[in-house]
């Protein structure tokens, strides 16, 4: 939605723009990828963008696992939703960086952790590719059409607020991010028919049960905290958890939550009969 809104704003300024998502297999809350190309003339290229002028990161927890600036042009800029200042963010290289605390803006204005409109304001400030007024206009129309005028206006305000609060600077470049390993077999190495049994590759497990390789904590806005004193070990949270990330430690008569696989749905807290579980912000 952010990529499309940006494209519309650019077009309204007389440019040509193309916006498209990469359709992944993951469901709501999972990291997603979207691209926008803006030019003064018609854009024919229909491929994904590999060397962008600007990378927009809506969730700074991704910075721990993904080298978000690996393809960014040297003179380009990274726009990041973060409470940190640019110089406190380590992107593995020193590069133009803009930051804004979009999540707190969103929570304040929209009462929900939806950062896609706020971050557009930061983009406008950081790049100057579109005017903030054009963005406000296309946000109002696009969100207003679907969700009502008031919602449109509030989202536009979120963008404007973010625009004003954006800090531009340079990132730090200390950490070394290793590219996430991926098993990419040749066609000769592909299992016949794509049928897999349990296996291990240089990039980790494959086959039945291998989704355990997929840490989904990045999806979570909240996470559960259990009060051991209050807990009566009824096991309802263990039963209901759709992720299976609450484990029984039978010999200790205890439970343990592996936050690597918690998406923060809050079912455990909602269903706990003795209110022993509280949902707290996963990242502040």
């Amino acid at each position: 939605m952010a990529a499309q809104t940006l494209a519309e704003a650019a077009v309204n300024e007389g440019n040509y723009a193309v916006a498209f998502p990469f359709f992944g297999a993951e469901r709501r809350g999972a990291p997603v990828l979207a691209f926008t190309r803006i030019d003064s003339k018609k854009i024919f290229s229909k491929t994904q963008v590999y060397n962008p002028d600007c990378v927009v990161v809506l969730d700074d927890s991704l910075l721990d696992t993904i080298d978000v600036v690996s393809g960014l042009k040297p003179e380009g800029i990274a726009v990041i939703n973060s409470k940190e200042r640019p110089e406190d963010i380590d992107l593995g290289k020193i590069i133009n960086t803009a930051t804004v605390n979009a999540i707190s803006i969103a929570l304040e204005i929209l009462k929900a952790p939806i950062t896609n409109t706020a971050i557009l304001g930061a983009f406008a400030k950081a790049t100057g590719v579109v005017k903030i007024e054009s963005l406000e206009e296309s946000i109002k129309r696009k969100f207003g059409e679907k969700l009502g005028e008031k919602t449109g206006e509030r989202n536009a305000l979120a963008a404007r607020t973010a625009y004003e609060k954006t800090i531009i600077g340079k990132s730090r470049g200390i950490k070394k991010l290793e590219a996430r390993k991926q098993w990419l077999p040749t066609y000769q190495e592909m299992p016949v028919g794509g049928s897999l049994i349990e296996g291990k590759t240089d990039a980790g497990l494959i086959g039945p049960g291998s989704f355990i390789e997929n840490k989904v904590s990045g999806w979570a806005t909240y996470r559960p905290l259990r009060d051991r004193e209050k807990c009566v070990m009824c096991l309802l949270c263990w039963f209901y958890c759709p992720e299976g990330t609450i484990h029984r430690i039978s010999n200790r008569g205890d439970l343990m939550t592996n936050y690597d696989y918690c998406k923060g749905c809050g079912v455990c807290a909602n269903e706990c009969p003795v209110d022993a579980i509280k949902m707290v912000r996963a990242r502040v």
């Binding site: 709501r28 809350g29 999972a30 299976g244 990330t245 690597d260 998406k263 749905c265």
Partner: peptide, 9 residues
């Protein structure tokens, strides 16, 4: 197993 990609909840 955990790590599947269903929506939260």
């Amino acid at each position: 197993t955990a790590g599947h990609t269903a929506c939260p909840g």
